[in-house]
Amino acid sequence: MLQKFYPNVHEAVADVFNGAVVMVGGFGESGSPIELIHALIDQGARDLTVVSNNCGSGEVGLAALFKAGRVRKIICSFPRTANSTVFPELYRAGKCELELTPQGTLAERIRAGGAGIPGFYTPTAVGTPLAEGKEVRTFNGRPYILEHALRADFALIKGRAADTHGNVVYNKTARNFGPIMAMAAEITIVQAQRVVPAGEIDPETVVTPGIFVQRVVEVALPAHESELIKAGATYP
């Protein structure tokens, strides 16, 4: 009997430790696992290295994790968005380290980490400030830079449905980083609107196979970042 089903978000994140590397799915609010992030804030782990495309908006979800002072370093491609003030303030005050990575390089570093590939050469960013200090190698007359894979201790991901074996399907463009982060983390935690018995999701439609998922927890009515911000919400 697989024990992947967790009764609530708090138990699902209970063992996140100080200094952990945590991948957080989402592109803007789409696919952001807000309830898992809020549970992580409650849980208290600090000195985290977060891997996520953005740094959140307002003072809920990912931005609230920054606001609570739990993030030592962020690896991302676009740390500012509309309504994002928390990270810029921390960054300017020297309280959070930023590793800026082009979006496709970020995705491929994560995919490579999950696929057992330690590094790869990419044409992206050649000749730009983001290539400084990186090995350059020429293939077929074109220069490429060496990028290193990313792995994580935990990944927090939002799905539409998951089964008790950890198979996941997503909602529209909320899929974004979910499938690759699930591959790259030791412990992948999925919050899904429905957790169903094994067999209810057609194997032909599974997007993330259960081997990449260690924990599933049902969050039937997940909050949307934009709606929380509109309502003036902050967390905690």
Binding site: S77, F78, P79, R80, P102, P123
Partner: peptide
């Protein structure tokens, strides 16, 4: 004092 942000622009123009 700008917050550096690149998104997918470098990937798009490389590929």
């Amino acid at each position: 004092d700008a917050i550096p942000a690149v998104g997918g622009a470098m990937d798009l123009c490389a590929g």
